[in-house]
Design a protein around this nucleic acid. Sequence first.
DNA 1: CCGTATCCAAAATGATACTG
DNA 2: CAGTATCATTTTGGATACGG
Lengths: 115, 115
Amino acid sequence: MNHEKIFNCPIEAPISLIGGKYKAIILFYLINQTLRFNELQKFIPQATPKMLTQQLRELEGEGLITRTVYPVVPPKTEYSLTEFGESLIPIVDALCDWGKNYIGNGCSGLRATPS
Amino acid sequence: MNHEKIFNCPIEAPISLIGGKYKAIILFYLINQTLRFNELQKFIPQATPKMLTQQLRELEGEGLITRTVYPVVPPKTEYSLTEFGESLIPIVDALCDWGKNYIGNGCSGLRATPS
DNA sequence: CCGTATCCAAAATGATACTG
DNA sequence: CAGTATCATTTTGGATACGG
C-alpha cells in the first residue's frame, strides 16, 4: 500500500497542490524568474511573512519550487521553479488570461517575459 | 465608489471565483451537461449535501451557473453553466489536462464530451 | 535579510438529524 | 428529491514580537 492521494476527478490533483491561498500567485511570479524572499513579499504584500514562508515551504515540499540559501551576511535566499513546477505553467497562464480579460489589466512588468 | 474587489495580480480574480473546495469540480462536471442535485452528489461523494448546496449557491450568486427548479413532486432541480461560467472552461481544461498526466487517468465517461 | 514563535480569531468544513 | 438546521471540529489566517 502506498500513501498517494486518491482523486475521483483529475482536477483535484492540481487543486490539492496549488490550492493554498497564495500558492498559485507565488508560482505566477516565479515563472521565468528567480526571486528572493523580500522580492516575493513586495509582489504579494497581503501575505504576512509567516504565510509566505508557510506556502513556500509547502511548495518546496511538493517539489514545485527550489529554495537556495546562500551562506552570506546578510542572508540571501532564492526561490525558483523546478521542472515539475514549470509543468503547471499552462494552468497559471489559463488563470492569468481569464483574469486579464476580467479585470482588464495585466501584470506586465512585474513578471519577466520569455525571450 | 464601487464594491469590486481589487486584485494585485490577475490570477487572483479566477481564484476568488472558483477557489472554493468543490467549485472547480462542480464546474468540471457541468461542462457540456446539465445535472440534477443528486447526480452531482454521486459525482462528488466527498461533498456533503450542505457543502454541495453552499458551493452551488455561491456559483449561482457569482453568475457562473443557473439553477432551475421544476415545481413537480418529487422535486427536480437542474444545474448548468451560464455563458459566463463557460468562459472558465479553459481553466478547468488546463487543470484537467495536468491532472490526467499526473494521475494517469481521465474522467472519460463521467463528463459528456462535445459532439 | 530571512525568517520563527506564540497566541488568537475567523472561516471553512464535517456529522448528524430532520423537512417539504 | 433536494435540500435545511444545528452543532462541533478542523483548518486557515492574522497580529505581534522576537532571533540568527
